[in-house]
Design a protein around this nucleic acid. Sequence first.
DNA 1: ACTACATTTCTGGTATTTTCGAATTAAAGT
DNA 2: ACTTTAATTCGAAAATACCAGAAATGTAGT
Lengths: 100, 100
Amino acid sequence: MELEQAAKQLEALGNKTRLTIYRDLVEAGRQGNTVGEINERLDIPPSTLSHHISKLVQTGLVSQERVSRSLVCSAEFENMESLIMFLASNCCADDSSIWG
Amino acid sequence: MELEQAAKQLEALGNKTRLTIYRDLVEAGRQGNTVGEINERLDIPPSTLSHHISKLVQTGLVSQERVSRSLVCSAEFENMESLIMFLASNCCADDSSIWG
DNA sequence: ACTACATTTCTGGTATTTTCGAATTAAAGT
DNA sequence: ACTTTAATTCGAAAATACCAGAAATGTAGT
């Protein structure tokens, strides 16, 4: 992964609200959650929520798929893994210390 | 690690300049780099650089120690590892897929 | 005390982010 | 076509981030 993309993903996660949203999606697993469900659970106004989700989608950490009237959001686990890999290989002293 | 602290650290790393600074410190290893060395290598104006480093220090990702007239900055590897652990355990589908 | 050096803090300007109500678009049922 | 539901986009305010020159601070040598 390139530094610039990593920085953008880190920035997207570097906000309490968005990190909470992302974690909620992780908990939901592959099947994801609709925007409405996230809204109900976390009590974030629709427009605010939409912007935050949009930021996560832009960076590839979350994907969206329309199912009838709802938009289902899912965590993109593979991209998160890539980000973690980036941090471990570029930002750690020695991989063995953490991967061992 | 708590969500709020993780968000702050992610935010600190979620900036191209700061992520570059941090990587530079990782490369320098335990012995670190003085602010002046970072300044020379990355060509960032002193005041700007100082602010960025300060943000990294605030979140615990970097530490500073005065050595004579210079300030030596070092990456706090253990805190970075904690952050990676947080991401892997709270923000990934299944640890086994990445730690295997 | 004076000078040089290393870095921070001050200051101010510009840009971006965050927030959220209101208006709008999209989809589905009646 | 009309209504309801689901979510986005618009618009505008407040807060925060970013940048960098100038001034101040701390440290060491003369």
